[in-house]
Design a protein around this nucleic acid. Structure first.
Length: 477
RNA sequence: GGCGCCUUCGUCAAGUGGUUAAGACACCGCCCUCUCACGGCGGGUUCAAGGGUUCGAAUCCCUUAGGCGUCACCA
């Protein structure tokens, strides 16, 4: 059997859309699940869109997502170069070959003529098909710029098989005489793509549905050259849902849309990859949702792919991200959240990690959660009223005063000791735990909700600051 | 507009002629609990519509509607 080879062929735009990442992931998973190769090829044939360092950016992003090419610009391989702008002579050779065989022709029309009514509606850009050979010679001699166009059959239809969609048939009369080689000598996507996929022995083409309609043109090229057809798999797009409920292709208006946006927000790469994998694919005979890359590879199969569009759901990403955090050790979490923990010593960092890892969807949630530890929010007497625990500002003062006395005596400011002292204090007070804890927590944090309880906050704050806050609150009450 | 693709809970989805139509997220309720979270238990909501075929249809066929894509010297 022929070796499975898939490729990811992005244009170098310094931006990795989630949809692109997913396409790369599926191509990678399929290849790896079949013991095949995954190739990275850069489609930089549009000089106007070239972005500096974009290739490195793509490679770094794939590496972060643990999608490792077997061949690529900086990964080596037997089919180099893997950057299309370095393969111009190859495309030219094959384009000329098609002109020779009568499947393509030179077109000397300028841009304006292209967009004429005739071409747009009736002619499908077929105007230069039957130029007088003498005129062609003349134009060439004058050095007049030209493009090479594919000569489409005028009758009949072209059918190709897609793994997800079955047979797709399009009438040849719908196909325009598309440009193969541009006047600057660069190939178009529709040409370079076919030539390279053949030369690089790609067995399965996994790409977005936006290419379904141009696939018959590609198929015709394979036929013109007498090349064996690869297997096509056209993936449904990733959608976004706007505030008004409308669904459209995932874009900026939906929030973060690139892998890097998500990383910057503090989602783990593993969590993003895991979530994205499930956006349009589900495992067979299993309800598993948390997958390592190895498990994805083991479980992946094409028949688990969905052919309908999937809406990107940030809420579910949050959940999945949280699952990854919860599964981490305190040390690992502290490590990954390091830049948010700068105000704490090592033991407190680890302890904070233990508190936060069950409460965080993304790392950037952290600052808002722990801000009160650094800067006490303004005093608000309203907070000292809590119906459920029958707490009032008056009662709060009555609890704070003795509590301060007890805490002042504590020299061993550790979690265990603090726990012990507070528990004893509650016991002696004869009040419910909540009734005692409420005023303490408010005085220490000036907010109703805190990650962790009173003891935890006391420990994190340290003795000095804790007592200062308690005293300050007592004074104001 | 032509052509093409798509349509199971709000979202991701399982399902391929006979199921009480899985599971997950979100949501709601209860339990645990010093708040929040974690954890545990429970709940509501789904086959786009209309026609067929069939003893029987989410599953097969037709029509309609809606969504998306494409119609570049962009990919």
């Amino acid at each position: 059997m022929k070796k499975i080879r898939t490729r990811f062929a992005p244009s170098p735009t310094g931006y990795m859309h989630i949809g692109n990442l997913r396409t790369a992931l599926y191509a990678y998973l399929f290849a790896k699940s079949q013991g095949g190769d995954f190739i990275l090829r850069i489609e930089d044939t549009d000089r106007a869109r070239y972005v500096a360092d974009a290739v490195e950016f793509i490679e770094r992003t794939l590496a972060a997502a643990k999608i490792i090419p077997d061949e690529g610009p900086h990964h080596g391989g037997n089919f180099a170069p893997y950057v299309q702008s370095e393969r111009m002579d190859i495309y030219k050779k094959y384009a000329e070959q098609l002109v020779e065989s009568g499947h393509a022709y030179r077109c000397f029309c300028s841009g304006e003529e292209m967009t004429s009514e005739e071409n747009k509606f009736g002619g499908y850009n077929r105007h230069c098909r039957d130029l007088d050979p003498a005129e062609i010679e003349k134009n060439l001699a004058e050095g007049k710029p030209y493009v090479i166009r594919q000569k489409m059959p005028l009758a009949g239809e072209t059918t190709f098989f897609d793994v997800l969609h079955g047979n797709i048939t399009i009438a040849n009369s719908e196909l325009e005489d598309q440009v193969l080689l541009k006047s600057d000598g660069m190939p178009t996507y529709n040409f370079a793509n076919v030539v390279d996929d053949h030369l690089m022995e790609i067995s399965h083409i996994i790409r977005g549905t936006e290419f379904i309609t141009s696939t018959p043109k590609h198929v015709l090229l394979y036929e013109f050259f007498g090349w064996e057809l690869p297997t096509f798999i056209h993936l449904a797009p990733v959608m976004g849902k706007a505030a008004d409920g409308t669904v459209s292709k995932l874009s900026k208006r939906h929030g973060a849309t690139s892998f890097n946006d998500l990383i910057e927000m503090g989602y783990l790469p593993e969590a993003i990859t895991n979530y994205v994998a499930l956006l349009g694919w589900s495992p067979k005979n299993s309800c598993q949702e948390i997958f390592s890359m190895d498990e994805l590879i083991k479980n992946f199969s094409l028949d688990g792919l969905s052919k309908s569009p999937a809406v990107f759901d940030y809420a579910k990403l949050d959940w999945m991200s949280g699952e990854y955090f919860k599964a981490m050790s305190d040390e690992d979490f502290a490590d990954v959240a390091e830049k948010y923990f700068t105000d704490f010593d090592e033991p407190r960092k680890i302890f904070l990690a233990s508190l936060l890892k069950t409460r965080v969807a993304k790392l950037s949630d952290i600052p808002a959660m722990i801000a009160f530890l650094k800067d006490l929010p303004p005093f608000d007497i309203e907070l000292f009223t809590n119906k459920r625990n029958k707490v009032t500002p008056q009662k709060s003062a009555e609890i704070l005063a003795p509590a301060i006395k007890i805490l002042e005596q504590v020299d061993d400011w550790t979690l265990d000791t603090l726990n012990e002292k507070i528990a004893a204090f509650v016991e002696d007070s004869g009040l419910k735990v909540g009734a005692v804890m409420w005023p303490l927590r408010i005085a220490l944090s000036m907010q109703k909700v805190t990650p962790g309880g009173v003891t935890e906050i006391l420990y994190l704050l340290g003795k000095e600051i804790s007592l200062a806050r308690l005293n300050s609150a007592l004074e104001k009450l």
